[in-house]
Design a protein around this nucleic acid. Structure first.
Length: 218
DNA sequence: TCCCAGGCAGGGC
DNA sequence: GCCCTGCATGGG
């Protein structure tokens, strides 16, 4: 089963997702850092808090106190780390790029990626989400959901870079497809491919799911 | 009560 | 390189 037909099935089942939900590129990055090991529901609470306190620009976060940031991001868990990392990132942006994200993205993608990875709190998935959804780069993020879904489907396995190559080789080089595909996989996984829950009878990809066949009579 | 959530960093080996 | 642990709140 090809990537494009999977994409079409998911699109038909779930509809367009219009990710990333944010009002600015900087907000995308803040959300990407906050959603680590946390649900989007809780990230939204933190974003609301930050907006209320006018703390959603690089300059504002760079100048904010850590306790103030902690209070805002507390619902997402790991709030001490996340508050510090957000402030460090904002200060880095201010110092190196005068707070202008377009400068960060105006170099070869690999250079931007390496630079993001060198920062505290930004690993492969966060860096690639930032590159795709804030930078508009053709980079496909691999999260735990994507790994689980594709392993259950028997389509791909391996570590981060191997799974990412599979998507880069097999997906149409189209920004909308990349953005939607990642979002659709997350929706699929949340509804039908939870950890340790094989019951996925309504899954739009159930015909292809080897995991289901092991647990359900088909 | 336990498990999980759109990870990351640092350590031991 | 691989594997483990700490980080922490909120919801099912």
């Amino acid at each position: 089963m090809g990537q494009l037909s999977i994409y079409k099935k998911l699109l038909k089942h779930f509809g367009k997702q219009y990710w990333w939900p944010a009002e600015s590129e900087f907000e995308v990055i803040v959300g990407a850092m906050l959603t680590q090991q946390s649900t989007w529901r809780n990230v939204e609470k933190a974003i609301v808090n930050l907006k209320r306190e006018r703390l959603l620009t690089p300059k504002a976060i760079a100048q904010a106190s850590v306790p103030e940031l902690q209070k805002c991001v507390r619902p997402t868990g790991f709030y001490r780390q996340k508050a510090r990392r957000l402030r460090d990132f904002a200060r880095y942006l201010e110092r190196k790029y005068n707070g202008k994200l377009e400068l960060l993205f105006s170099k070869p993608v690999k250079d931007t990626r390496d630079e993001l990875l060198s920062l505290d709190g930004i690993g492969p998935e966060t860096a690639d989400s930032i590159l795709l959804y804030a930078g508009g780069k053709l980079i496909f993020p691999i999260d735990a959901y994507t790994k689980r879904v594709y392993e259950r489907l028997g389509l791909a396995e391996g570590h981060y870079s191997e799974l990412q190559k599979f998507f880069h080789y097999n997906l149409p080089r189209d920004l909308v497809v990349y953005k939607e595909m990642h979002a659709l996989i997350v929706e699929l996984a949340k509804d039908y491919c939870s950890k340790n829950k094989p019951l996925c009878g309504e899954c739009p990809l159930r015909e292809q799911c080897s995991f289901e066949r092991r647990f359900i009579n088909m």
